[in-house]
Design a protein around this nucleic acid. Structure first.
Lengths: 175, 175
DNA sequence: GTCTATAACGAGATAGAC
DNA sequence: GTCTATCTCGTTATAGAC
């Protein structure tokens, strides 16, 4: 799904990949929407895990932000996109539950980024003007779009450059 | 295609929508990749027309940028996404020709934005630091991602807010 | 639980009449 | 050029044996 999208994969694809029969796959996920939803939720929890870990293990908001942005480049280097960015493009063809899960996923990112931006502002590690939540939304949008455009351009470098550019906009000058 | 994506539409969908038979559609576009390519090229030329018109009719780079950004919100308000943003998500499933067309489409945007940013810098209407092409890439990424996230969030307002935020970052203070 | 077999349907694509 | 009819294949999904 992170290579071909929801409408680009089938029970046959997945069954062959996993090494089971289509029927067995249906046993666990009766409909394709069930399968799709499960994949989203697993992906979402993986990303949530990363974001929680960053909160626990990193105390420098700039480092947190940098590592968050790094996940996108890592993803592209493995020839995978952000599942939810792709599903947003296929939005009209998704079940209601899948649509809701995608919405929630983006909400999680915006919430997390807003916290990091606020921390950065208070600790003086990050520097920017205006509403932190607005900036959080912009960072998310930029990375989601950047990932897709970089994929189309066949260039990981483009995404690294974008990441660095974004980071430089928020990095506070050394005290 | 701008609602459901390339893998979300079929000859049946299109034929019914247009009011012709599937066979007639195949007469003009033998394979689905032919159809897809034609749709991209038409979309690309429509957008190129808009960008050329802006160069001819608007002399204020800030206005050019603002009107360019406005196209995204207009698109979303009609429940349509950017065809090429969607196709980037389906990249792995596209024919080589379609992939190239998508790449070119993004190239056109980056080229156009770079010119506008350079004009803005020289005329003093726009203000920013660093490489104009880098900023062009970031603006494209932000709007492409912003469009998809706004679609998933079901919020045109989010995109308008993002547009205004972006514009405020580049608008030079009044002289 | 996992499989083979198959149903029911829609997909992309073609043949050939008009 | 446009159509009806058809082909072949892949799809989602189910039935039922083991």
């Amino acid at each position: 799904m992170r290579q071909s999208g929801y409408n680009g994969i089938s029970y046959r694809h997945v069954a062959d990949e996993v090494g089971i029969s289509k029927a067995t796959l249906h046993h666990y996920f009766p409909t394709k929407a069930d399968l799709g939803l499960a994949v989203i939720e697993r992906f979402r929890s993986e990303i949530l895990k990363i974001m929680c870990d960053l909160h626990e293990k990193e105390h420098n908001p700039l480092t947190k932000l940098s590592k968050y942005l790094g996940v996108y480049t890592l993803s592209l280097s493995e020839n995978k996109l952000c599942l939810c960015g792709m599903l947003a493009a296929e939005h009209a063809t998704l079940s209601e539950q899948m649509q809701t899960a995608v919405t929630d996923f983006f909400g999680n990112h915006i919430d997390w980024l807003e916290i990091v931006l606020r921390e950065g502002l208070m600790s003086g590690r990050l520097q920017f003007e205006g509403n932190p939540r607005r900036h959080a939304k912009m960072i998310l949008a930029t990375m989601q779009g950047g990932l897709l455009v970089a994929k189309a351009q066949g260039s990981t470098e483009n995404l690294e450059s974008l990441t660095e550019h974004l980071l430089s906009m928020y990095r506070a000058p050394h005290r």
